[in-house]
């Protein structure tokens, strides 16, 4: 059982991650992503929504797979800007590593 942390999303605002909760988890971004990799990038966005900080840090290397092609952002039906979110998460993860 993982405890949901609703404050995490707010914490991420400082890194430019502020549209994660706009996502309604339709999966378009994952399906359109040329990486064709599991649930990426929706997985990361969902982890932000429920505040699964540890999961993001554990799987941080996945964030660097992103080619920043922009397909997910262009086709997102909620304009949740998944591409930008991934970039913001990279900034967050880097900051965490630096702190550690």
């Amino acid at each position: 059982m993982a405890l949901v942390d609703p404050d995490f999303a707010a914490e991420l605002k400082a890194y430019g991650v502020d549209t994660a909760l706009d996502c309604f988890n339709c999966g378009t971004c994952a399906a359109i992503c040329p990486l064709n990799f599991e649930h990426f990038p929706r997985k990361m966005i969902r982890y932000v929504q429920v505040g699964a900080k540890q999961k993001i840090l554990q799987q941080a290397q996945d964030l660097w797979r992103c080619l920043h092609c922009g397909l997910c952002t262009r086709t997102c039906p909620r304009q949740a800007n998944p591409g930008e979110l991934i970039l913001g998460l990279r900034r967050y993860v880097l900051a965490q590593f630096r702190r550690a």
Partner: peptide, 25 residues
Amino acid sequence: AAYLDPGENGAVRVRYESQEATGGV
């Protein structure tokens, strides 16, 4: 369904993210 493209013999390929735990694209 995120994307459609033509498949073999007139079939159509549907790309989507399965939300099942073992799913993925």
